[in-house]
Design a protein around this nucleic acid. Sequence first.
DNA 1: ATTTACATTATTGTATACATCTCAAGTATC
DNA 2: GATACTTGAGATGTATACAATAATGTAAAT
Lengths: 229, 229
Amino acid sequence: MYKSSTRSFPVYDSLRQAIIEQALKPGVKLPEDSIGETFGVSRTIVRNALVRLDAEGLVDIQPNRGASVAEPTIEEAYDIFDMRQCLEREVMQRLCAMDPKPIIKALKDHLAEEEKYLGKDGTRSIRLAGEFHILLAELTGSRILANYVNEIVSRCSLILARFAQAHSAECGVEEHAEIIEAIARGDAERATTQMHSHLHGVQDRALLNPEDDRTENVAQILSRYRPEK
Amino acid sequence: MYKSSTRSFPVYDSLRQAIIEQALKPGVKLPEDSIGETFGVSRTIVRNALVRLDAEGLVDIQPNRGASVAEPTIEEAYDIFDMRQCLEREVMQRLCAMDPKPIIKALKDHLAEEEKYLGKDGTRSIRLAGEFHILLAELTGSRILANYVNEIVSRCSLILARFAQAHSAECGVEEHAEIIEAIARGDAERATTQMHSHLHGVQDRALLNPEDDRTENVAQILSRYRPEK
DNA sequence: ATTTACATTATTGTATACATCTCAAGTATC
DNA sequence: GATACTTGAGATGTATACAATAATGTAAAT
């Protein structure tokens, strides 16, 4: 998909990266003009990139109103996490039915990277944690599955940006290690439940966040700051 | 997603429909000019539609070579069917945990439609059969899940166009009825296995087709037609 | 006769111009 | 002071022009 030999790919990729790293927060407007200037390309190019991101659910294009970073509702957030559970469950099933040797090697290498930057480089750390899940999907050998997982992981990042407190919902490195362990033993049952609770943990920390109800609108927030009459 | 108030939507939708109804067969070139003339729009519009279809896996855009209807390989075909199994399993799980009454009503109405056109209007019959699965997904209430199912069902239609003999791989109406029955009883176990074997049947009829190896390329085919020296 | 080089044609890639729409600020009216 | 209307800047929607590339046809060279 999406061959890189076009000028719109770098724009697409940069926007995507910025969104999943939460540099571009949900709701932020993405004007074609200014983005085009930034990358030195015309609106035509930018537009194509935005259309693609819209198709992936990271950007929301509204007719005559332009594009902005998508703002998943809390209901969508739950549905997306459910979807992720469903997909990553499939990943576990497939991996545990394969020859574990090359898989474990690749995973342990990645885990080493994760540990290397743990606590040092926050952004990189988060990215690596996400890429662990994508690596798992790629190791199944199904490009289709890997693409879907890639997309859904991105959308989860967007959800974290919208609902979670900073850093509250990161993946734990130890949990990744336990998942690798289960795959190494070919224990599909355990690998699956392990992954399930891992993802559930991330979701909980992201969405069960009673004191931070971001679904409230500007008026609600500002009413608390209004001086007494 | 994809608001319909733009001129590119009708183009997108028509192309999509033509592809899943197998009027546009895998590999067929989709030149921007001629499509634009057909719909009375400029290449700009057509291009956007094609980009979207490419993102959905129904169209393949190659740089400087234009777009054509995607030609999934046999490996991708298997992966896509696996994916579909995974998604529709999730649909069954969710549906069986819900109040069956409104669900069953909607499904039976749809089934009646299917029966109405069975054997009469082939194209419509196929479309309705596909829409049964999409309806199931929509009834879960998860727009996310419904979108993914919608996409994957389309891609399966593409696979049938590429690998199956005409009409050999249609959904059976009776099997749909049995699935409805299982949901009505809230029997998640049975609904799931029922759906699984239903999809497996479709897949088998599509892909286990020994005498029709469409993965061979032009060179391979022509080698058989080459006259003796 | 085969191959190579060049010319031609068709198609895609990209920028830009113009039309159209949205939104907000300002104006007028009540 | 509030509401409705007007206006204009800024942004998007779309068509089109031109550049770049790939595919094809043709002719010269060996």
